[in-house]
Each structure stands twice: as structure tokens, then as C-alpha cells.
């Protein structure tokens, strides 16, 4: 089954099309990378799919049904720069917000919601930081909080905008372990990813994007020098070390 299917998607800011004729489908249970240069429209694609931006055209279905927030089957981790770090809230509180969809109107988070949030915090090695205001966390810790929040949303399809940016090797390992665990549970994880070197290692499905879909398929078929050059407009330098192909963007 398909986790995500997008047909004829067009998105424009101020009438200028940023994404055009986007058609893609992503298999259920995959770990998918969205790859493309800065300004390619990766964040825009996720926001348009999830209805945070108006689409000029396009149909979105998630797990075979037209996308609706009411189905509560998607989770979202925002790009770092879009978070208000000065908001009066702490780590545990942010994670609890992931439960708001399950709690319903006029009700407060239950003991069970709080227990779930604490468990997620613990799982990401953040148990000691529950009361920290979010600006006073390090970049990696902030990223973990938002991942924990996505976890407690208990979704089927996760969208994550650059979860690996600004984290050290240890956090990166923790995050990828978590993504693999989600995959094992049959969840689908779609990740905007900038580090081309780790794409083949981490992801089994890849979407190359630059204003439109350049290629979309299993990583070993899509992640080729040719298609990458096409995606990045020839601005990539390839060089080999020890027979390994390495990529610099």
C-alpha cells in the first residue's frame, strides 16, 4: 500500500509557482529521504501536503484516503528555524502538545498523556530536562524534544523537516535508531535530508526534488550521479576516496 500519494500538486507564493506538477507516491513502511538544494521546495512540499499552505491544485492521499487532519494519522517535526524558542514552555510541555489531537476539546491532558510524554522524553535520553525552557536546551536536545513530540502523536506517517541538522554524532545515531524502530513497527517516515553521504545508508526510498520531482524510487535506483547532478543543477562535485564515491554539495 502507499503511505502517501500526491497528484498534480502546484504551490505558489505570491502567484509565483514554487512547486509545479508534483506527482509522487511513497510506499508504506519506508524510510524516505527528500533531497534537493536549498530553496528546492522541500519544506513547502511538506507544508502543502499537510495543509499548512494553500495549494493551487493537487490531490493528497495518506494511506489510501484523502488527507484530513481529522484522521490524526500524520506526525510532523518542523524545521528548526520555524520554532519560537522564546515561548514560555518547557520540554515536557512541548511534548504534551503532541497529545492535544487525542485529548479533545475542553479537556486537560490526562495522567496517561503525561505518562506517555515522560516515557518519550525518557526514550530520547532527555529525562533530566523535562523542566527546561526550550531555548535553554542545546540544538540536539531541542531536536530530540520535537521528535519525542512526534512520537506521542502516535501517527502512521511521519514528516520530519531536517531532523539531523545541528546535532552531534551521538544524537544522530539516537535519531536514526528511533526512525528504524518506527519503520519496524510498520510506520512510514519521510525526512528532508541534507547530508547526501548518509542517504544510501539511512533511507530505503528517495525523492529527488527541485521545484518538481526529478526522481522518486528505491534509493539504489534513484541515488545516481546523473540524477543528483540534475537535481542540484550540476553544482555538485564528486570525488572518490578508496573507491568510495563521495559527494559534496
Amino acid at each position: 500500500m502507499e503511505a502517501l500519494n500526491v497528484k498534480d500538486l502546484q504551490v505558489a507564493y505570491d502567484r509565483k509557482a514554487v512547486l509545479d506538477q508534483v506527482e509522487l507516491s511513497i510506499p508504506k513502511g519506508s524510510l524516505t529521504a527528500i533531497v534537493g538544494p536549498n530553496g528546492a521546495g522541500k519544506s513547502t512540499l511538506i507544508k502543502a501536503i499537510l495543509g499548512m499552505l494553500k495549494r493551487s491544485s493537487g490531490q493528497i492521499s495518506i494511506l489510501g484516503k484523502p488527507y484530513s487532519p481529522k484522521n490524526r494519522n500524520v506526525g510532523y517535526v518542523p524545521q528548526r528555524g520555524s520554532v519560537d524558542w522564546d515561548f514560555p514552555t518547557n520540554a515536557l510541555d512541548v511534548i504534551l502538545m503532541g497529545r492535544y489531537g487525542h485529548i479533545g476539546w475542553f479537556k486537560r491532558p490526562s495522567k496517561q498523556d503525561i505518562a506517555l510524554a515522560k516515557e518519550a522524553l525518557h526514550k530520547l535520553g532527555m529525562a533530566d530536562y523535562a523542566d527546561r525552557q526550550i531555548r535553554q536546551l542545546s540544538g540536539g536536545q531541542q531536536q530530540r524534544v520535537f521528535l519525542a513530540r512526534a512520537l506521542v502523536q502516535d501517527a502512521e506517517v511521519y514528516f520530519m523537516d531536517e531532523p539531523f541538522v545541528g546535532v552531534d554524532a551521538k544524537t544522530e545515531k539516537a535519531i536514526i535508531d528511533l526512525l528504524r524502530e518506527l519503520k519496524q513497527k510498520g510506520k512510514t517516515v519521510i525526512v528532508v535530508h541534507h547530508d547526501l553521504q548518509t542517504v544510501p545508508e539511512y533511507f530505503d526510498h528517495t525523492l529527488l526534488l527541485n521545484r518538481t520531482v526529478i526522481a522518486n524510487g528505491p534509493t539504489e535506483q534513484v541515488f545516481t550521479e546523473d540524477l543528483l547532478q540534475k537535481t542540484y543543477g550540476g553544482a555538485l562535485a564528486f570525488f572518490s576516496t578508496n573507491g568510495d564515491k563521495r559527494v559534496m554539495s
Binding site: 495543509g51 487532519p69 490524526r72 520554532v83 514552555t89 492535544y100
Partner: peptide
């Protein structure tokens, strides 16, 4: 705090 999350939760 996070209008984007609110949208995905259907608020």
C-alpha cells in the same frame, strides 16, 4: 506556539 502542528491536528 506552533500553528503548523495545530493545523495537522485539525484545529
Amino acid at each position: 506556539f506552533d500553528a503548523a502542528l495545530a493545523v495537522t491536528l485539525g484545529l
